[in-house]
Amino acid sequence: MKILVCISVVPDTTTKVKFIDGKEFDKAGVQWIINPWDELALTRALELKEASAGKIEKITVVNVGAVEAEATIRKALAMGADEAIRINTTAKDTFSVAGEISEAIKDQGFDVIFSGIESSDFNGVGVGGMIAEILDIQSVSAVSGIDFADDVFKVKRDIDGGFEMLEVKAPFVATVQKGIAIDPRIPNMRGIMMAKKKPLNVVESANCEPLSEYVQYEMPKPKPPVKLVENAAELVNVLHNEAKML
């Protein structure tokens, strides 16, 4: 069995975002990280492999990005992924990213493809579901737990207002969220050393065209300062009479 984990490289969560003329994200001084959900997905994939007594042979990570992404991709290898694929182009929109990944991996026979439920930059949620549709395989979304035993995957998915435990047959895409793992695995020294020797294959882009373009960024308008009140009675009074919210 082989597992693929889609990795997007995003600005550190504490980044104060800026744009150049409202047209382009200003990368100056930005720290890049593995998208938090993708990191959890990879963590769980590694745990599954370790517990599978050899049944899950390989964990591959894939990223659509320019050469700058490689430092972050190496971190995924340091965490324990066996190999990496970088598709050499910049991510344009969700559809083009999903198209690039599908094209690059369609003949590689991955049994499970993990993707994060959202990437914390553009907050697109579609990559996993789109890959599944393009490859014509099953997909399960909002996955907050996954186990592998007796050749079946038991998948926990959050439904709106509860959860379901599912049995899912490979191949499928799992779009994962929190709960799949709690804390991301931290690479150790040995992992970091080994990562340098692991394969990071660069694949040329299939030139998947985007369907949308980002034309103008805007920062939120500064909001008026907080109105402080003294006690609960006053708070209810302003919420009711001034804000008309209660």
Binding site: P11, V17, D121, N123, Y214, Y217, E218, M219, P220
Partner: peptide, 13 residues
């Protein structure tokens, strides 16, 4: 976008 830190006008083609 950027978890609510900014917004963007998207042109759909």
């Amino acid at each position: 976008v950027y978890t609510g830190k900014a917004s963007v006008d998207v042109k759909v083609n």
